[in-house]
Amino acid sequence: MKLNVSDINKSYNGKAVLQDCSVSFEKGAVYALMGPNGSGKSTFLRICALLETPDKGSVEYLSGDSIVRNDIGLRRRITLVLPGVGVFNTTVHKNVVYGLKIRGLSKEEIRRRADSALEFAGLLHKKDHNALTLSTGEGQRLGIARAMVIEPEILFLDEPTVSTDQENTAIIEGIILDMKKKGMSTVIITTHDPAQAERLTDRVLIMRDGKIIEQKSP
């Protein structure tokens, strides 16, 4: 699935947050959105992930040449990991299987995918712990594991390593690199770290004052 963003604008209380942003995201590539605080990265990501609607412009998902209808079916093919993750007050395991259960997957499939994602995120030994007792870095890994299990075609990660220590950052980067290697998902992350963008991504978009001012290779 390809994502086309055309001329999107967004304002909050009369203040323009995004202005005429246009970009295409190709299937299977990893992108970084970079820019200073307040440049509109998170808003851009939230609009792309269909969590918010733009005031003007369009966000279109394309399967081949045809536009995919914006409904629950499309929303189940993409996902966004928010900066605060939003872990549910239940076990780590139940957090991870939430997206699978609401999709009505078989018990066997749920177990297979959950165990694999938890192992990958280094959280298998904590699967029965309450998710609220995890550290910030572990919580972030849980957020990624929770998103990975649903095998999204496009995964948005909003500042996945902004408040994590070196060890957790390395684990999270490892997960993203593995996804890149497999090429199954398009990954779009926001980051402040140019070195991280270089390590992980195929393409970098620079944002400033609500505009995409540059698109380049890392």
Binding site: A49, L51, I72, R75, R76, T79, L80, V81, L82, G84, V85, G86, V87, F88, Y98, G99, I102, R103, G143, R146, A147, I150
Partner: peptide, 17 residues
């Protein structure tokens, strides 16, 4: 926390879910 609502939506939950 409002983030719970947003996280549920991003994981593909319907309004009822």
């Amino acid at each position: 926390d409002p983030i719970i609502r947003q996280a549920s939506i991003t994981l593909g939950a319907t309004p009822v879910q």
